[in-house]
Design a binder for these strands. Structure first.
Lengths: 235, 235
DNA sequence: GCCTAGGTCCCGTAT
DNA sequence: ATACGGGGCCTAGGC
């Protein structure tokens, strides 16, 4: 279905594909309206609409990683033909959100029978960094002993909780990449919470473990008496 | 090109489309390898590969808003045929990253000539919330007077800086949606920085303006002597 | 180029 | 259902 297809055939192809649990794409000149957490309007242009069997809708232009408009998984797609123009209406609740794509012209419609049993395996994540530290705690500092991961505080969970060679409590916040001010704020919240929950005699140190740190984050660390340790997620 | 196409024709179609500045999609059974800021492997499965004229690559499965693998804009796409199988290699520098998609089978290849002159118009953003406050400062509190937006401090830019009816300095941090602990940390950084940069006599208040706030964030606000004002980005 | 913060962020996990 | 933090986040705007 590639050259100026008949509108009825287009609608039927999309509907049949969706009913069959296939992935359906529509390419053509369209307008897009979105309303929900925010709202948006997009004037006419050529775009690729991707409708997935899980209820995802993606509107892709010629540029950018991000779809210009979208609907997350779990939506219901409705296909209509009004005055000979194809309209796709995709909606969900909690939150209430609607996406409307109205095609002036349809250049192509395609149905794809998709099966995918493989799972993506990623390395270089924060989890890898955590394993590295747990297996070789001295990478953080000599004498460091991890005691818990995901230890809960009033401010949230500490990535790694442990003690240093002098017996001080240590809060470790891990980041897989260069850290900015936000990570310092996070570490500070955990350290402050743990100090409040500890006996007064206990010293609580805060360590930000990441490949590198920005200047401003470094200043913030110094201000709050926190420390930085350079460490990559991979060996 | 829809039914079990000839490998050479597939390669030529993809290459010709890319050369022509078109958007090209390839659907089929493939494996994907990524290496760069992290690295990943994905076993065989049916996916839709989208190659954009700006150098973006997207690998979409049957599920999810997010592509399972991708390459951001600015990459170079290379198309090869080795042992009769189609291989797409997409790479960039700074950071050095590569994406390899190897097709066992190709079900369909499509070329789309895309032009899109329209710009997306969005409302309900943080910018809208800012305009609302600047036009009606009393929505924040009676007597509030905005004096600057994006006022710089050592910790970063304050969304709205102003004074209250008593002449105290006021730091306003805006969020378009319900706020959590991270927003409190952000506001706290700005308030602390401004206090340091001000004369000691000056009182600096911190206001988090957002539709709502989580319990933990509310506690953090209280701890740090900061305040919350409920306000939606739209009227 | 890096830094900073916003986003209809999405997404998984825990509560 | 909400909350919280990670992400190869991406993207825009400054410097």
């Amino acid at each position: 279905m590639d050259a100026t297809p008949d509108p009825v055939a287009v609608r039927d192809t999309v509907q049949t594909g969706l009913d069959a649990g296939e992935l359906v794409t529509v390419f053509g000149r369209c307008r897009v309206e979105y309303d929900g957490r925010a709202s948006s309007t997009l004037g006419p242009g050529d775009r690729l609409l991707v409708l997935k069997p899980d209820g995802t809708a993606l509107v892709h232009t010629d540029e950018g990683h991000q779809p210009v408009n979208w609907q997350p998984p779990g939506c219901e797609h409705e296909v209509r033909l009004s005055d000979g123009t194809l309209r796709i209406h995709s909606s969900r609740t909690t939150p209430e959100e609607t996406l409307d794509v109205c095609f002036e012209t349809v250049t192509a419609v395609n149905r794809y029978a998709v099966t995918d049993d493989s799972e993506l395996s990623v390395s270089g994540t924060e989890a890898d960094l955590r394993e590295r530290v747990l297996e070789s705690p001295s990478l953080v500092e000599s004498g460091f002993e991890p005691r818990a991961t995901e230890r809960e505080t009033a401010a949230g969970a500490i990535d790694i909780y442990g003690v240093d060679e002098r017996g001080n409590a240590v809060v470790v916040e891990l980041k897989r990449r260069r850290v900015g001010p936000d990570a310092v704020g996070q570490l500070d919240r955990y350290v402050t919470a743990l100090r409040r929950e500890s006996h007064d005699e206990t010293t609580v140190r805060g360590l930000l473990v990441a490949p590198s740190v920005t200047d401003r984050a470094s200043e913030l660390l110094a201000d709050r008496g926190l420390e930085f340790v350079a460490l990559e997620p991979h060996s």
